[in-house]
Computed example of a mutant assay.
Amino acid sequence: MTQTALVTGGNRGIGYAIAAGLTKLNYRVVIGSRSASAGADAAESLGAEAVQLDVADPATIVGAIEQLGDVDVLVNNAGVLFDRPLLESPQEYRASLAVMLDGPYHLIRAVTPAMIHQGYGRIVNMSSDWGAFSQGLGGPGAYGVAKAGLNALTLALSRELPENVKINAMCPGWVKTRMGGAGANRSPEEGADTALWLATLPDDGPSGGFFRDRAPMAW
């Protein structure tokens, strides 16, 4: 039976590379994108599907999951990056948390009942070493705050979810994308590798961890 994988922000960058990798592994891949046309174009190029999904809008999350049916693999990849200081822009602070913390929370709530019922699920949260206290919470604006919250959510939910529904966070490194910039030292495919590993973990794979290059990282 073909498994369904939903990749948010899968129309470009690391998300597109993850979607491409899962397509090659014969998953039914669905690209979730705020722009319906961008998602449709990306999906067509991969032989995948697309759904309009604004992770900052819980109503579109509910509608997207109702449209898709059961999801076996969820990759919370969508992200935003603002460079103004935290205290100068409450709007950007709210947007950062809405996209990179609240959105993943609502998506996880939407997909996990089916995962628990069928006894299988894989959730991958695209985080960053900028969200790690061990690395000093770097990055501009609220980016590191949101990613630190996503890391905390990952660990907390690993204690609530059954062992066969695995949830992990990962850092892709510095990747050449619109967000990462041209000076980055990794390709989107290199950034996607750990996400693909976590999305396809065997039954004895880890849960509640934080990884880079398939190796554990300190929170």
Rank of each mutant, 00 (worst) to 15 (best):
E88R: 00
V71K: 06
Y105N: 04
V7A: 13
P206N: 13
W130L: 02
G139E: 01
L25K: 02
A192W: 10
A192S: 10
S134Q: 02
K147Y: 02
G32D: 15
A95S: 15
F82V: 13
P85W: 12
R212T: 08
S96M: 04
A98T: 05
M170L: 15
V29G: 12
A42C: 02
A132G: 02
L81Q: 07
A36Y: 12
Q67C: 09
L161E: 04
V111F: 07
A199T: 13
L107V: 09
L87V: 14
I31M: 04
A19L: 09
D72Q: 10
V62N: 11
P90V: 02
Y16D: 00
A42I: 03
L6K: 11
I31N: 08
A95Y: 12
F133M: 15
G131A: 10
E189K: 14
G141N: 00
R34D: 01
G47K: 05
L97K: 06
G139H: 05
S89L: 04
N164S: 05
V80Y: 07
N76I: 12
A110K: 09
E190D: 15
G121L: 05
P85Y: 10
R12L: 12
G173T: 03
I65P: 06
L155K: 05
V7H: 14
S35I: 13
D204K: 09
L201M: 05
G209T: 11
V71H: 07
G139S: 02
A98K: 11
M217H: 02
T2N: 08
I18Y: 00
A50N: 14
E92D: 07
Q67D: 13
V7K: 14
L107A: 08
D41F: 05
E190F: 12
L161C: 05
F82E: 15
A156Y: 00
P140M: 12
I31D: 09
Q91W: 02
G136H: 06
R186P: 03
E160T: 08
L53P: 12
Y16K: 00
P58C: 10
Q135T: 08
F133A: 07
N168E: 02
V51E: 09
T154F: 04
A38H: 14
G79C: 10
G180S: 07
A38S: 14
R178W: 11
G39R: 15
N151A: 04
R214W: 12
A215P: 06
M1Y: 11
E44W: 02
V99Y: 00
M126K: 00
A110C: 03
L6V: 12
R214M: 04
